[in-house]
Structures are given as C-alpha cells and as structure tokens.
C-alpha cells in the first residue's frame, strides 16, 4: 500500500489527550438561579476521551473505529481544533481539511456556490485559488444544477458531495473523514474511495472513521480501536478488526 518509509515525519501528535464533557441541564437564568448552590446536582460530567496518545506519520491512513459513543468523533474534533482537550497536548503540522459528521460547516442560507467560497476561505484558500478550482469542485460533486440553490434545500447526499469535493480540492496534507461517506449513493462512494486512494499515493494522511469493516480493510494501514474513550488497540488492520469485534463483546 502506501510507502510509509522509515523517515516519514509525524504530522499529528496527541499526548495524554483527555476530554471531559460537563452536561448542564439548565440553560436559562431562572434555572441557574433556582439551582444555585445545588448546581453540582444538575451537572453530570464524563470523560469522552481518556489519556489518548497517538503519533500519526505522514502518508498513513488510519481507521478510527469503535462502538457508538466511544469517542471517535470527539477525537477527530480535538485533532481538528474544533474542541479543546481538557488535558494533554495536541500538535499538528500541515494543512488540514475535515469532514465532520454531517455538513462541512455550510451556512444553510447561502447557495452552494457561496458556501464553496466561504469554506475554501476557511480552509485557507484565497478567492483567486478558489475560482481556479471552482469548476473542478462542482464537477466532482456532480450537483452543478443545484450550485446556485441555498444549501438548506440540499439532500444530505448532496451536502456530502459538495463537502467532500471542497475538502479534496484544497490540497490538504491531513484529511479527517467522519462517517459522512455513508450517506452518498454507491457510485459516489466509489468515487470517494478512488479519490482517497489517489490521496494515499500522494502521501497525504487520512484519518478515517467508518463502520464498514470492508472499507477499513481495503483502505487503512493502521487501525485504532476506541472503547469508552480509551485506545484499546492500535496496530495493523486485520487484528484491529478482530479487536473491534472483541470490544463490542466486552462492553
């Protein structure tokens, strides 16, 4: 598969990353005042990530797997800088693009075209560069007829098509993909897989969350299994899938 040569530089380095969520049950002033002092009763906190330590080398494709709620999306968000870890450090280098759950950060009231420019700007492209790539983005997404429609009228499949098309056109060194591809239709999924394989040949790093053992098996060089926020397995793909099954049984 990829030529993860000996001297491949580390691009993502997580050290002892822990993330705690505090779930407050009230949001308004009245409730806060009424519950003042007893506020701990109305708080629940739990660790979505516990002491996660990972080094990810350039050019690898990592499959991040685990049961629902095991912390996969949370880990991707911490890597993406969207949420902050409570403990530990996260370091990264290179340009990053992320496809997190549904919607790549689109604004529902804007058209597809406007969102392309907005997103590309967020991911670090200038207006000029985006104009250059625009046609190619739209072609890849195959939704040219809807590009001037507000994205709130898009189906979830169309959403992902556009989001994926943007993410792969901003020349990322690191690509985070969270389960989103599952909503695309089959031809589009195949197209995405082909694109991901192309990315692998180009030495880009891909962190990939999927529930499809088949996809994981065919794409990933390495699998990380999470369970209750902890890394319970980190290693080659085949054993990783066995470890995932074991983690389902053991919970």
């Amino acid at each position: 598969m990829t030529t993860a040569s000996v001297e491949a530089p580390v691009v993502v380095r997580a050290q002892g990353v822990s993330k705690r969520f505090v779930i407050r049950k009230e949001k308004s002033l009245k409730e806060r005042i009424v519950n003042f002092g007893r506020s701990n009763l109305h708080k629940e906190d739990f660790w979505a990530l516990r002491d996660v330590t990972l080094d990810i080398e350039a050019g690898t494709t990592i499959g991040l797997v685990g049961a629902n709620g095991s912390g996969k999306s949370t880990l991707l968000k911490v890597i993406g800088g969207i949420i902050q870890a409570n403990e530990g450090t996260l370091e990264r280098r290179g340009r990053m693009a992320a496809l997190l759950e549904l919607g790549a950060g689109f604004h529902p009231d804007l058209t597809g075209r406007e969102n392309v420019f907005l997103n590309a700007a967020i991911l670090g492209l200038s207006q000029k560069q985006t104009e250059q790539y625009f046609d190619s983005i739209v072609d890849f997404s195959e939704i040219r007829d809807f590009i001037d429609t507000q994205v709130k009228f898009y189906s979830s499949g169309m959403y992902v098509r556009l989001a994926f098309a943007i993410a792969v056109h901003v020349d990322p060194d690191i690509l985070l993909v969270d389960e989103v591809l599952a909503v695309g239709d089959e031809p589009f999924q195949r197209k995405c897989m082909a694109k991901i394989e192309e990315f692998q040949r180009e030495g880009r790093t891909i962190i990939f969350v999927s529930h499809s053992a088949e996809q994981i098996q065919s794409l990933c060089d390495r699998v990380v299994v999470l369970s209750h926020g902890k890394v319970v397995y980190d290693g080659p793909t085949d054993e990783g899938i066995d470890a995932l099954r074991a983690s389902f049984e053991g919970r």
Partner: peptide, 20 residues
C-alpha cells in the same frame, strides 16, 4: 515522488500546538 516531496516539506514544518 509526490509523496516523498510532501513528507520532506512536512518534516521541515514546525509543530503547531492545537487549542489555545
């Protein structure tokens, strides 16, 4: 190769601490 070029460029970049 493209991949090697990328690796070389990345190796030269400093790490960025994510999250303030």
């Amino acid at each position: 190769s493209v991949a090697q070029e990328r690796a070389q460029r990345l190796a030269a970049l400093p790490f960025e601490r994510i999250g303030r």
